[in-house]
Amino acid sequence: MRLLAALGALCAGLFVAALMIGPAQIGIAESFRGLLAGDGAAGLVMREIRLPRAVLAALIGGCLGLSGAAMQGYLRNPLAEPGLIGVSAAAALGAVIAIQTGFAAAFALALPLSALAAALLAVLLILFMAGPGGGSLALILAGVAVSAFAGALTSLVLNLSPNPFAASEFVFWMMGSLADRSWLHVVIAAPVMAVGAAMMWGIGRGLDALTLGEDAAASIGIGLPGLRLRIVLGVAAMVGAATSVAGAIGFVGLVVPHLLRGRVGGRPGALLPAAALGGAAMVLAADIAVRLVLPGRDLKLGVVMALIGAPVFLHLIWQQRRGG
């Protein structure tokens, strides 16, 4: 509980910092006045540009952290992460197809739901390939294949677009960015994210029981098919919605559970809320970093995340190799 309070405070602090930092130099007092009163140019910047961006960063980070913790708990494998195993790449493909075919404009939630559908296919494929034990090799290899395939198709769709700008947007879809996102994006992504997160409610007990093995879990009354269904749908909804508005942001679901696992005594159930808060803090921090390092250049979030995430990933593989 103390960990959750500390993570919550960290999120709140980073959220305020994210509101205070931006290419337009606005003083702290003026920022707060703009945020509360909402009038004038400062009000517009705070309420319509920085606030939705910070809200989206927190929501997306929370979803990615929670998805990573849930998948790792279910597969009992610390390498299971939506970005690494191709779920994010598939979601990006779904979003790009929806945008380029015009389906995204058909109704309000068409964009996140298209990404959800593609992410769902990827999750099912990965679970099928990895098998019930969730072996690392099959998981990562299937992930590499799904990522490469989805990435290539995304590039193809963008290249076929009659809009010359679209062809250069592959980087956004593969690396993720929150630049110039608005309330429009919060409004379409948040409901789908909320449904996904709601599905995760109460799976903690099942994940804890799974650490004893599937037979033991079944013997204490855990319905494994139901658990699996909820995780599959929940992860697809959360990663799909997050990716459809901000592109694929990798490594969040890998790094955050890795950092927090020791703090919750290795219990996957207790890790879920901690990973959600930790993910929110991490994406908020990364989005502050991209604005501090190269303001006005739209440095991609994936760049920052990979700088942190890739060493963690290698460390995990090293540990698994030594552990056998």
Partner: peptide, 24 residues
């Protein structure tokens, strides 16, 4: 940056042609 544009308070913003299919 959009923030900078908003803070500069222009009185006239001139935009150009748009393509039929959307892009980010």
């Amino acid at each position: 940056a959009l923030e900078e544009l908003v803070m500069a308070g222009p009185e006239l913003v001139v935009t150009g042609s748009r393509y039929a299919t959307p892009s980010r």
